[in-house]
Nucleic acid binder design. Structure first.
Lengths: 250, 250
DNA sequence: TGGTTTCTTAACCGATTGATTAATTCTTTC
DNA sequence: GAAAGAATTAATCAATCGGTTAAGAAACCA
């Protein structure tokens, strides 16, 4: 029991036609495996959560839920495959950005914009990563896989970006790990805190206008937040460390 | 069916002794209602998630799961009560901070530190709010309640803080809603992205040292990010708006 | 004391979950 | 066209979920 790894279903054969079912005939080329991933992602995106049941998956895809076991071993295998597929796209975009001939500040701008727009297209990605990396989870092999193929590379690329900025005299020296957590958190929260936006825009969905304003805002905060400008003005005596045990919250 | 409101159990009477059960006799004064809230919060905090089942709640509290219906109507009622109890504490702290005789910048520092330390003590609070405010949820009355008693006041207090900073010449003008989302997101993500910290510190738990460093980091980013210093240095041509549809992500 | 209210319990309910099986249909190969 | 392998299906499983009930125990009030 508890099948760790499944034999590859050898997806080399010609894809089978949809036959009589053809629910939601949107498939460009019909492939049950991809279709399961697509519908899982779509369901997660619609509800901004990762809790899709196998029966839902079967209903919305027009496929049988047992195919999840056939192609992915179990439900966790499907989630892992989905996270890796979407994560790879995001990772490739970031790699391309770093290679372009732009100032580090401009790269940072586009990086932040890219994160938010990526979360907009796949609102479930961050939550899915969190879920797969949860220590409570039985399959820690999946966690190691995600860490190796996505988290670590993103961290390394961000470190590279920060280094470029420091060398160009545009950024202060920032610990990459702290940068990673704060940037991803700020970007992701736009979609977790949709509720609060009801007062801002009319609807609780994140409209294009709100998203653009939020992109500009986060860019503003972080570009100014880590810029290496001469530390002037009426602000900031740089007393950071011990300001913890004060009181307060919000 | 679907009992909206429950008659108040009139908790005026002298609390009953625990009797023979007395599992985990930690109760200062024994009160089943409070005990349910406490154990729910503790379970959520341990696993950094809000999905506690009634059977778990009964097992860890030594009480019967039917008491949830008795005291809170249903499970959502318990979650709402927990969120309101903890949220009220956080709200009060923020109110007190704003009344103190400090510079807006220093208030902002302490505010950020307070948020993070509050999330440290109650890692479930933010997720619980998100869950209760989810539009998918049946009981939208709970959402309105949370919005009115917590979200709106926090937004108003942050707006006040930002206004103070602008009047004192320390802050630029920042849209409070965008500030709210980005600050809360950056602070909360320290506990959602614990996985990534495994490389940073040894363990996947958020150590005191890491937390202090993160507090200092977020303070640094936001204090500098919204400060009204003369816009000097080699940075930032202020082209914010249309930098969306570029490419990239990370 | 007896009656009423408040509090607590064990047992049970239908619904849903992820997983598993054995049989069946399609495709490829010989 | 028959054997072999790959893909898909219906049906079922135990486990768990949140919720409900009826009855009993404890405290209160007369």
């Amino acid at each position: 029991m508890n099948p760790r790894r499944v034999r590859k279903p050898a997806a080399r054969r010609a894809p089978r036609r949809a036959g009589r079912i053809a629910k939601m005939a949107q498939a460009p080329d019909f492939n049950a495996r991809e279709r399961l991933l697509d519908t899982a992602g779509q369901l997660m995106g619609d509800r901004h959560a990762t809790d899709v049941s196998l029966s839902e998956l079967a209903e919305h895809s027009g496929l049988n839920s047992a195919l999840v076991k056939y192609y992915f071993g179990n439900k966790d295998g499907l989630l892992l495959a989905l996270a890796e597929r979407d994560g790879a796209v995001a990772l490739r975009d970031l790699q391309q950005l770093l290679q372009q001939d732009l100032s580090p500040t401009e790269k940072l701008r586009r990086h932040i914009g890219g994160i938010i727009n990526n979360f907009y297209r796949r609102p479930y990605l961050n939550r899915l990563l969190h879920s797969l990396l949860d220590s409570r989870r039985a399959d820690s092999a999946a966690a190691r896989q995600i860490t190796k193929t996505f988290i670590d590379p993103v961290l390394e690329l961000q470190r590279e970006l920060l280094d470029q900025g420091v060398r160009a005299g545009e950024f202060r020296s920032i610990e990459p790990m702290l940068f990673y957590v704060s940037v991803l958190g700020a970007c992701d929260h736009l979609f977790n805190a949709r509720y609060a936006l009801q007062h801002f825009s009319g609807r609780s969905t994140v409209s294009d206008a709100v998203r653009e304003r939020y992109v500009a805002h986060v860019i503003d905060i972080f570009v100014n937040g880590i810029s290496a400008r001469p530390r002037g003005g009426a602000v900031a005596d740089r007393r950071t460390g011990k300001s913890v045990q004060h009181s307060s919250k919000g």
